[in-house]
Structure formats: structure tokens, C-alpha cells
Design a protein around this nucleic acid. Structure first.
Length: 224
DNA sequence: GCGACAG
DNA sequence: ATCTTGTCGC
């Protein structure tokens, strides 16, 4: 069976028109913020999605869920969301608490057709969503200052599609972009407000800790 | 044709 | 993403 990339491409263009790139909630003051991350197991045949709920502004871990779903598509740059969304949708349904803001590991609109995983899933969840990727998919940006907090625009075809943020000194920058129902400015501000001394914002960092059984998560489990 | 290419 | 120990640097 071959993969119909032409059809997926068409779907992306269709979904991209539905992405809201402004603040739906002008005065967003979330009670709960979620973080989502996807990993793979069993030789890449199973997608494992982890999602956490943290409180704002404490950013304390409140809930976590993990879902395992059979993989249906290989990794193809530009089509990541079709590979990871099924697992993300599965964990989403398992959540007891629904967030007011969501962080997804990967690009939002900083994608060739404006539909990275964060935007694709944000459309499904219908919640303000921010995409935070650890590397670039597309777009150009100028040299970033070495200090933590330095930021530059991520541009693509004459448009600002996101921000490149050095969240921590001596670390590669983060690529922040609009997922859904939020503006580029707010996506950057909320990402900065969720930083607590590490390269990744807390929601994403916790999701990764849960998915990878990091010692920080094991310690949290022990004192529950 | 050649290089780039989220996770 | 994942396979994986130690190791260099702050």
C-alpha cells in the first residue's frame, strides 16, 4: 500500500484555512495548562502519547495520562501530524481535566503549508494551542544572541511564522509558533512564562518526563 | 540536479 | 523518534 501524500497535502491546505491566528481569549488567565509529547516503542510500531495537566501559575503537575496506539504512517517531514495525532487524540480523551491552554511538542503554523502537529491537534482539541519545536522545519532567522531570553523572528515567504527563542544559555533555541486560537505574540509570552530554568517550558518538560520515565517523574510518583 | 527535512 | 556510556564543560 502506498501513501497518498497528494491527499494528505490537500487535507493540510484545507485544515490550515481553519486555523485561528489571534487570541480567541483576549484576557487568557488559564487555570490548567496541558503539555503533550509523542514517543515510539516496539521498534517504532507503537506511538506512545503522554499528556499532562499543570496548574497556573504554580506549574505543579496535577494529572498525567499515557496512550499507546498502533502506528499507521512512517515519519515523513511535513506530514508528522498524521502520524502523531491519533495517539494525541487518544490521550486527550483520557484526560479528567481539560486545559485552557495547550503546548504541543512540534511546529504550529511554522510549517510549509501552515499545519504542523500543534495546529492540526489544536484544531481537533479546539483549545488555544502553542507549538514548541526543538529544531527548525522551515523558515529563516538571523543569528541569535547568546543570552537566555534572546528572540528573533522566524520568517517564511515574507511572513513572520513564529519566534526562535533561546530559553536557556548554551542551549539550542526553541521554535515557537501559533498552534490555534492564539497570536504569535501571546504564544511567545506564554512560552516564556512557563519556563522555569530549563530549556523546555514546564508543560512540555513534564510530558517528556512522563513519556520517558525521567527520574523527576518517578520522584513525583513516589510522593503522591 | 542538490540540499534540507518537526518527531 | 530510537539505539546507548561515558565524558567534557559549566
Amino acid at each position: 500500500m502506498s501513501i497518498d501524500l497528494v491527499r494528505l497535502n490537500t487535507l493540510q491546505q484545507q485544515y490550515a484555512t481553519k486555523i485561528i491566528q489571534h487570541d480567541t481569549d483576549k484576557t487568557l488567565s488559564p487555570r490548567y495548562i496541558a503539555g503533550g509529547d509523542v514517543g515510539f516503542e516496539a521498534q517504532g510500531t507503537i506511538a506512545r502519547a503522554a499528556m499532562v495537566i499543570v496548574t497556573w501559575p504554580e506549574l505543579k503537575l496535577l494529572e498525567y495520562q499515557v496512550a499507546r496506539v498502533p502506528v499507521t504512517l512512517p515519519y515523513i517531514p511535513g506530514y508528522l501530524s498524521f502520524r502523531e495525532c491519533p495517539a494525541l487524540e487518544a490521550v486527550w480523551h483520557m484526560l479528567t481535566i481539560k486545559p485552557d491552554l495547550l503546548f504541543i511538542d512540534g511546529q504550529g503554523i511554522a510549517h510549509p503549508r501552515g499545519l504542523g502537529v500543534a495546529s492540526h491537534f489544536g484544531l481537533f482539541a479546539d483549545v488555544p494551542t502553542i507549538g514548541v519545536a526543538k529544531s527548525r522545519l522551515c523558515g529563516q532567522y538571523t543569528k541569535l544572541a547568546p543570552e537566555a531570553g534572546s528572540v528573533v523572528d522566524l520568517c517564511y515567504q515574507g511572513q513572520v511564522i513564529g519566534a526562535v527563542l533561546r530559553s536557556k544559555v548554551r542551549c539550542n533555541p526553541l521554535f515557537v509558533s501559533v498552534g490555534h486560537k492564539i497570536s504569535t505574540a501571546s504564544a511567545l509570552i506564554w512560552t516564556q512564562q512557563c519556563l522555569r530554568g530549563y530549556r523546555l517550558p514546564e508543560p512540555t518538560r513534564w510530558a517528556d518526563a512522563v513519556a520517558s520515565h525521567r527520574p523527576s517523574f518517578e520522584r513525583w510518583l513516589a510522593q503522591q
